[in-house]
C-alpha cells in the first residue's frame, strides 16, 4: 500500500468514487480534437457501452465541436483516431465496447490538413 495511514487496513475502507457501476449504466468517455485547443481540454460524456461508434460521432462528438470554424472543413473519412493511445480504425456500426472504448477511455482524433485558426495548432 502506497499511502501511509494511521490504520493499517485503510485500503479496506476506501470508496473509489468513479467506479463504472456509479454511472447508471453509462461509462465515462473522453473526446479530444487535436490541434484545436480553443477547446481547452478533452470533453467528457457518460455514454452507454453498446452505443455504436458512429452514433457517438454523429450525436455526441459533432454537435459539441460544431462551433469551431474548422469544423465544416473536416474530411471525416480521413480522420485518424486513437483509443487510449492505440491507433484504431473504428467500425462505425459496432459498439464503443467493440471498438475498445472502455470506462474512462480517451478518444483522440486528428483531422489531417486542419490545424486550427491560422494553423498555429493552439486554436
Amino acid at each position: 500500500m502506497g499511502v501511509v495511514s494511521l490504520k493499517p487496513d485503510y485500503e479496506q475502507h476506501i470508496e473509489i468514487r468513479d467506479r463504472l457501476e456509479n454511472f447508471h449504466g453509462n461509462q465515462i468517455v473522453y473526446l479530444h480534437w487535436e490541434e484545436h485547443l480553443s477547446f481547452c481540454a478533452a470533453i467528457c460524456f457518460p455514454l452507454p457501452p453498446d452505443m455504436p461508434f458512429g452514433a457517438m460521432v454523429e450525436n455526441v462528438l459533432k454537435p459539441h465541436y460544431a462551433a469551431h470554424p474548422d469544423f465544416e472543413k473536416v474530411d471525416w473519412a480521413a480522420v485518424k483516431w486513437t483509443v487510449d493511445n492505440t491507433e484504431i480504425t473504428p467500425d462505425m456500426e459496432t459498439s464503443l465496447a467493440d471498438n475498445g472504448v472502455g470506462h474512462k477511455s480517451l478518444i483522440r482524433f486528428w483531422t489531417p490538413g486542419l490545424h486550427g485558426y491560422k494553423s498555429v495548432g493552439t486554436c
Binding site: 485547443l37 467528457c44 460524456f45 459539441h64 462551433a67 493552439t122
Partner: peptide, 27 residues
C-alpha cells in the same frame, strides 16, 4: 505565437454573434 491567435479567433466569433462557449464538460 500561441495565444494571441486564439483570442483573435474568439474576437472574430464574438463580432459575428457567435461568442465561443464550450458546451460539454471538461476532462
Amino acid at each position: 505565437k500561441y495565444y494571441r491567435p486564439r483570442y483573435e479567433m474568439w474576437r472574430e466569433m464574438e463580432k459575428d454573434g457567435k461568442r465561443f462557449y464550450n458546451n460539454a464538460l471538461p476532462q
